[in-house]
Design a protein around this nucleic acid. Structure first.
Lengths: 243, 243
DNA sequence: CGCGACGTTGAACTCAGTCAAAGTTAGTGG
DNA sequence: CCACTAACTTTGACTGAGTTCAACGTCGCG
């Protein structure tokens, strides 16, 4: 039973912008259904086109590129509210793969209708560009992270960024949130080897900074982590459009 | 004397998509003038808003982020045809700085008119999103590069990417193109130290791969560089919109 | 119970960073 | 025309964070 956009569980969150009546009407029409996929499913494949666009409703996933050498670069972690398939939508081909890490529920949009969005809903088109610009910003920050930070700092920063997003989505209780990824996933996101990631995680656990085991990540020393990651202690995410 | 968009020196290049009459008319109106800046000028500043958007017409520049520690992360090299200020346009603030490396000539657009672009010119809005998606793709590749490649490979890849862009812009003669950056700029782009960049450049020069000195970069062994960079020898850039 | 996926640990090695100093070049002003 | 400076490049020596290799441990599942 598909959720009506009017009852979207995500949109009421302060993280997401309000939607006008006309936008809502458009979205209800734009949305063609819902999809539930099992953990491990590939939603989008690098090099392929895709007939659908998605917005994650529930569950968690990964975006990654596969390199010629077989290694992976994780581009980002996919959480509820994330729009999936913009590249395929405008460029007709994906340049990274999107995979479900847990079982996921997704809103499905018809790619062919994307053009009508630009024609009929300039606000929504603007929002799409906004999202793309945010992603660009995020990737720029990731680049800086890989270019200039130690393993410990990268992990601290990744944890804090995830916690920020998790907080805005109500996934955090008592500085603890579900993080159902493997160590290899984090290593591939941060440009580190699995072994070194493992050792650094252990040291951070022992030093009482953060504890990530069994699919759940808990921040133990918030201030310490912020300092390590060179991040403000007082942060909040800018509200963003939901598509 | 400002160039009329009808006589745009860039648009006829195969790198750029054709433009319809109505798009051209819109662009002529959207463009409010031209700006010429000296080498070293900052066009956009991180954290600040900007009243204007630009498209580079001539000259070369840099996009970079400044980190808390004072280090820089170069995000990308700015060449003619690049659109500057999308972040400021949609997010009201830049998250990186854009600086002219050489004297530059730029088309100037009024930021306030950006919204009219979305309202009146869905094709142009689509193009803008397209550009943003391309940038996202590029950053994803850069991330993979920093995460998984050796210093030599990163430099090889950077050179080839620049040469691809330079070729499409007619800046390459005999596998040689102007590259007016400092070694520090490349180092900051690739997440390497200046010293190591210098030594790697020397070794690549001595091994007959590529020679970059005095503001000019020449590829000596194309096949060798491609192999090193894990790139196809036979590449071409997808035509893209010019804004 | 055995297999596969994931996590943990130790040892050896190496690529790249840091430090420190000298060389080169272009520009400036006396 | 030459001393002087500032920006950039080059070089050598030393160091260490992170990789690689190779096991071993643990847990859930068919």
């Amino acid at each position: 039973m598909a959720t009506d956009c009017r009852n979207c569980p995500l949109r009421p969150r302060p993280l997401f912008d309000d939607m006008s009546e006309s936008e809502l009407a458009f979205m209800r029409n734009f949305k063609t259904g819902e999809l539930e996929v099992e953990a491990g499913a590939q939603l989008m494949m690098e090099g392929a086109n895709a007939p659908h666009l998605y917005t994650a409703l529930e569950g968690q996933g990964l975006r990654y590129k596969t390199l010629e050498t077989g290694e992976r670069q994780v581009i980002n972690f996919v959480l509820p509210g994330d729009f999936i398939g913009l590249q395929a939508g405008v460029m007709n081909v994906m340049y990274h793969t999107v995979e479900a890490t847990t079982r996921m529920r997704l809103c499905v949009f018809n790619r062919a209708a994307l053009w009508s969005l630009f024609e009929e809903q300039p606000e929504r088109a603007y929002d799409l560009t906004w999202l793309s610009a945010v992603e660009e910003r995020f990737l720029g920050e990731s680049l800086a992270m890989l270019g200039h930070m130690s393993a410990e700092q990268r992990i601290a920063r990744a944890f804090l960024r995830l916690q920020d997003r998790g907080t805005a989505l109500g996934m955090v209780k008592n500085r603890e949130m579900p993080l159902p990824y493997r160590q290899q996933d984090l290593a591939d996101a941060l440009g580190l080897s699995l072994v070194h990631t493992n050792k650094t995680l252990k040291s951070m656990r022992e030093r009482g900074l953060a504890d990530w085991r069994g699919g759940s990540m808990k921040i133990l020393d918030y201030s310490g982590l912020c300092e390590l990651a060179e991040m403000e202690e007082d942060r909040s995410l800018t509200p963003r459009p939901l598509i």
